[in-house]
Simulated scan of single mutants.
Amino acid sequence: MLHAEAHDLEADTLQSLSQASVGCDFRIRFLSGPACEQLRRLGFCESMQVRKLAHGRNLICSVCGTRMALSRELAEQVKVCPA
Score class of each variant (00 low, 15 high):
residue 48 M to R: 01
residue 67 R to S: 04
residue 9 L to S: 15
residue 19 Q to G: 06
residue 79 K to P: 00
residue 61 C to H: 00
residue 43 G to N: 07
residue 48 M to C: 02
residue 12 D to M: 15
residue 9 L to I: 15
residue 14 L to Q: 09
residue 73 E to V: 11
residue 8 D to I: 07
residue 5 E to M: 12
residue 20 A to H: 04
residue 4 A to V: 14
residue 30 F to I: 00
residue 20 A to W: 03
residue 66 T to L: 12
residue 14 L to K: 04
residue 39 L to W: 01
residue 40 R to G: 12
residue 57 R to N: 06
residue 37 E to N: 09
residue 60 I to S: 11
residue 23 G to K: 08
residue 64 C to V: 11
residue 32 S to P: 01
residue 72 R to T: 07
residue 63 V to G: 00
residue 49 Q to H: 09
residue 22 V to A: 04
residue 33 G to F: 05
residue 15 Q to H: 02
residue 63 V to E: 05
residue 39 L to R: 01
residue 41 R to Q: 10
residue 13 T to V: 10
residue 54 A to H: 12
residue 32 S to F: 10
residue 83 A to I: 02
residue 67 R to E: 09
residue 32 S to K: 12
residue 50 V to N: 08
residue 33 G to D: 09
residue 6 A to I: 14
residue 27 R to F: 03
residue 25 D to R: 14
residue 8 D to M: 09
residue 60 I to T: 13
residue 38 Q to P: 07
residue 20 A to G: 03
residue 36 C to I: 11
residue 78 V to I: 10
residue 13 T to S: 15
residue 69 A to E: 13
residue 68 M to F: 04
residue 58 N to G: 06
residue 44 F to A: 03
residue 23 G to Q: 02
residue 32 S to L: 13
residue 38 Q to L: 15
residue 76 E to S: 13
residue 21 S to H: 13
residue 29 R to G: 12
residue 42 L to T: 05
residue 34 P to S: 10
residue 27 R to N: 08
residue 70 L to P: 04
residue 28 I to C: 03
residue 74 L to S: 06
residue 42 L to V: 11
residue 37 E to P: 02
residue 61 C to I: 01
residue 62 S to L: 09
residue 4 A to F: 14
residue 39 L to K: 01
residue 35 A to H: 14
residue 39 L to T: 02
residue 76 E to A: 14
residue 78 V to S: 01
residue 79 K to Y: 07
residue 19 Q to R: 08
residue 40 R to H: 12
residue 53 L to T: 08
residue 76 E to V: 09
residue 9 L to M: 15
residue 32 S to D: 15
residue 76 E to N: 14
residue 11 A to R: 12
residue 75 A to E: 05
residue 39 L to F: 02
residue 63 V to H: 00
